[in-house]
Nucleic acid binder design. Structure first.
Lengths: 261, 261
DNA sequence: CGGTCCCTTGACAGCGTTCAATATACGTGG
DNA sequence: CCACGTATATTGAACGCTGTCAAGGGACCG
């Protein structure tokens, strides 16, 4: 069992984060140059943990391109596979009866998609690519079978699911206790941290999602997102350039999240 | 694999719930008269799914009394075991640096506690009994080991975790899109449904938690909870009697949740 | 019986939503 | 390459809901 993801997980959780209040995320698996099964760059859940003999048998793993705006899966689809984001990024959103949607999360490379569907056997949210992306398809039946003789793989799956739960607890805290500026600061710090985890520059960060999608994720309207962003800009904490955003003062952003982080 | 929990899970999720908008919950396992291992009434995760031979070896399961207001575990505790509520009820809450708390959930009999700690190896929230309760202690190392040769047990665990994730997505929707009355109506409908799942009368329901705890869970202040409750009372939808609450019009409550459920 | 905790209600202020207008970026087709 | 239309982002003004502050009543416990 690699230990880095655990350490990252601990850091990302409330009260222990170096950037207090930053929204927790499922830590990215340490990147490798190539997936042993799919032959695509970077590692994924199954590829990374299956020992060589099992890998040869585990054929339920393949990669798939997803163009910007296209679905990885739709609410209502029967559940059969998990996905990991290999490159690009996605959003997951619960559809509402009136046509609106609640964005439940944004996924960067290495993040898992579809964990919410194992229990019911049906996907409950839409997963949509925010940019041209590539996902790894992991047949869940095969994964479960492969995990039976492999404690390491089983533990990895359990941890990924548990971290997702912890991440959502942190988001509940954001939605339940913070005002607009705090929510936005928390979101930006978390995103920056996740970029850094992946070896990308933590600033400037490229926002692949619309303001409206950020708002849906944070429980705010577009106008409120824009206004909060403008206030953070006026205070010298960030420099927004549409989809590009410079973080100018991480400490001040953390302080802005304050006692609620 | 029993099928009832699956059906229940599907019902509890957005867009498919018989009480639209009711907050989703992890369905209670179908009750049995006695746990085969602990000898306590009702079944639990491990007890119910371990075949007889494995059961004899699995000693990491025992029950524990928890008095009202006492902790099942505390934030910061090392993770070693999951818990199921056998009787009574609990709350889980994320502590905030300033001493306040965010209630992440209420657990009734049959519900699992501690799933959020598997990933980090450390509990991130407090679990506190709302009334004199009894919990079943399930050593996680033993459970994982026991699950290795048992696909059924493994799947059960995966489903429980996945349903927890789906439940929290639904709560994010509540926190992100609903106003005070809708949140409260959704909460009460969900609670009523969970009581019914356990064979208890769906109304009147006994609220073991304080208004303040309901508020923390729903992202509202005590006064707002009280006011929203009074409005629902004035409209003839509920009849509150302090900790006792009659649901007078389920259909109207569902309608109140409206298009957002 | 007194004290504390919990719940409810009122008045007011503040923040976020709503409605509206404007500006800018992007995509499409000429 | 330019022109146009659409989508996205920002900003302003007024309204409404929820938070805040304050007071009072009632249940439970020692």
């Amino acid at each position: 069992m690699r230990v880095e993801p655990l350490a990252e997980a601990a850091r990302m959780l409330p009260n222990q984060d170096p950037a207090p209040g930053a929204m927790a995320s499922v830590p990215a698996p340490r990147m490798r140059t190539q997936c042993a099964i799919c032959g695509v760059r970077e590692a994924c859940l199954a590829c990374d943990l299956l020992p060589a003999p099992a890998r040869a048998e585990f054929t339920g793993c393949g990669s798939r391109r997803v163009a910007r705006g296209k679905h990885v899966y739709r609410a209502g689809d029967a559940f059969s596979a998990l996905f990991t984001v290999r490159s690009g990024s996605c959003k997951t959103c619960l559809p509402l009866p009136d046509g609106r949607e609640q964005v439940t999360g944004f996924q960067l490379s290495g993040d898992l998609l579809g964990l919410e569907a194992i229990g019911a056997g049906v996907h409950r949210c839409n997963a949509i690519a925010l940019e041209d992306s590539r996902v790894c398809v992991i047949e869940f039946a095969g994964l479960e079978a492969a995990a039976l003789p492999l404690p390491e793989l089983q533990r990895h799956l359990h941890k990924a699911m548990s971290l997702e739960i912890a991440r959502e607890h942190a988001l509940m805290l954001v939605l339940g206790t913070m005002d607009a500026e705090e929510r936005l600061a928390s979101f930006l710090l978390g995103l920056s941290q996740r970029y850094a985890d992946r070896g990308l520059p933590a600033t400037p960060l490229h926002l692949h999602m619309k303001r409206e999608e950020i708002g849906s994720h944070l429980g705010m309207k577009v106008e409120t997102v824009s206004r909060a962003l403008s206030r953070l800009r006026d205070e010298g904490l960030v420099r927004p350039e549409l989809r590009r955003l410079h973080l100018l003062d991480l400490a001040a952003l953390s302080a802005r999240v304050g006692a609620r982080g």
